[in-house]
Design a protein around this nucleic acid. Sequence first.
DNA 1: CGACGCTTTGACCCGTTTCAACAATGGTGG
DNA 2: CCACCATTGTTGAAACGGGTCAAAGCGTCG
Lengths: 245, 245
Amino acid sequence: MPDHPLEPLVRKLNSNAPISDKERLAVQNLPFTVKHIEADQDIVREGDQPSNCCLLLDGLLFLYKTLPDGARQILTFHVPGDIPDLQSLHLELLDHSMAAATDSSVAFIPHEPLRELCHAYPRLADKLWRETLIDGAIFREWVLNVGQREAASRIAHILCEMFTKLQAVGLARGNSFDFPITQAELGDATGLTTVHVNRSIQKLRGDRLISWEKGRCTIFDWDRLKEAAMFDATYLHLVGTSDRG
Amino acid sequence: MPDHPLEPLVRKLNSNAPISDKERLAVQNLPFTVKHIEADQDIVREGDQPSNCCLLLDGLLFLYKTLPDGARQILTFHVPGDIPDLQSLHLELLDHSMAAATDSSVAFIPHEPLRELCHAYPRLADKLWRETLIDGAIFREWVLNVGQREAASRIAHILCEMFTKLQAVGLARGNSFDFPITQAELGDATGLTTVHVNRSIQKLRGDRLISWEKGRCTIFDWDRLKEAAMFDATYLHLVGTSDRG
DNA sequence: CGACGCTTTGACCCGTTTCAACAATGGTGG
DNA sequence: CCACCATTGTTGAAACGGGTCAAAGCGTCG
C-alpha cells in the first residue's frame, strides 16, 4: 500500500515519543493539498500572512531574509518531513521568505484544522511546539556559525548539519547526500562571497574531508570534518540517535 | 498594593489578546522562587537539564554559545518580562548558556506546573508558544545581522532592537535606555573585535546618531539610526505598537 | 553549435583583526 | 582621603582574511 501523503509528518511526530493510534488518525485526517514547486521559486514572502503551513514532502527548501541594500541571508535549510513555516501558526506576519532550492513537493495544511488538532490533542501540540523550538535552536547555531567560525568551518558546519538531518530522515546514502545548491547560495548562507566559498570548498577538498560534485556531497572523514566544523549535534535535539550512522 | 511578582508575565501574556480573569489567576498561582543573580554569573549552562523556567524580573540577561577554540557568541539579550529559557519546557538538553549582564533578579518557575497550566488553558499555551516563536524570529534577524550587515550597522541594529524591546515594556525613558554592557560583550554579540566595536561606536557617535556613556544610550536621531541599522521592527512581532513612542 | 548558468582563477583592495600600549574609571583597603 | 589595582575604553600600526572585479573554463541544454 502506498504511504499516506502526510506520513513524513506522522513519522516526525513519532520520533521523540510514539503517538497513539488516535493521534495518528487525527493527523492523517488533516486536510491538505500537495503542490509542486520549481527550483528558485518563492513559496511565501516576507510580509505575507499565510493561512497554511507547509510540510516539505520532497526536495530542499530554505528560508531567507533580504536587506534594503540587496544582501540576502539564507537562514536555514529544510529537509523532507520539516514544516518550515510552522511558526506562522501563531505569528500573523511572516518576517522572512521561503523558497525552493530544488524542485520540491510540499503539502499545504490550513492553519485552522491544525490549531484544532493542537487543542484536541495537547500532546501533539507539545510535539509541534517542540519542532519549532528545534528550529529556534538551529537559528542559534547559525548565529554562532556566521558570527564566530572562519570561512571553511562555516561551510563544513553546514555540511555536517545537513548530513545529520538527512540521515535522520533516511535520505543519506552511506557517507554521501544530495545537496544541490549553488556556491552563491552557500555564500548567502554563510555570509561569504561566492569566490571565497569556492576557495574554501577547495580547501575542504584539498584536505580530503569531502568531495562535492554535481550536487552530491561525500564525506571522506566524518571525524575530521566535524572537528574542522566544530560540530556538535546536540542543538539538533535528535533523540535516541547516535552521532553517526 | 504591591504588584504580584509574576505581574511582568501576566502583562506579557496580556499584550497580544487580553486573557481572562481565570487565566490570570492561574498564572498568578504558579509556584516560583525569586533569586538575585550577580553580573557575569551564569544561570544555566550548555548541557544542563533545567527543571525550571526563568522569568526575568529585573536586569539584563543574555544567551550565548562558545566554541572549542574559545570564541563566544552572544545570541540575544533579554529584558524584564522575558522568559529566556522557555524552550527548556520541551527540549531536554540546553544547547546554550545563559548569563546575567548586570545584577538581575529572576523568578524560577518549575516546568511541571507550567506544563499543567498549558494543558489546562490551551490559549495560554498558545501565547507561550508564540513567545518562543518570537525568540526564534529574533535569532533569525541576528543571523542576518552578523551575516550581512557591516560593523556599525550591526551595532546600530542591536541598539534599535533593545530600544524597541525596552520601550515595549516601559523601560525606555524618552530617547534613552540603560544598556550597561561592555564593548567586549557587544563584540561577542556582533561577531566583531572589541577594538572594532569601539571604532564603530565612535562612528555612530560622530554621525550624531547616538551617545552612549556609563551604560546609558541615547538616540539622537531615530530615523537615521534605523536607516543605518536597516532596522524593521516587524520581526519583533509587537502588536498594536507603532514604530516609535 | 552557441548561449547560459555555474565554477574557477588571478590580481588587487579594504574592512577587520591583531598586538601593544596607554588613558579613564571605579572600587578597595590602608 | 588617597594610593593602588582591575576593568574598560581608546588609540596606533601592521598584517590578514575575505571582498571586489573581471575574465576564463566548463557543462548542459535548446
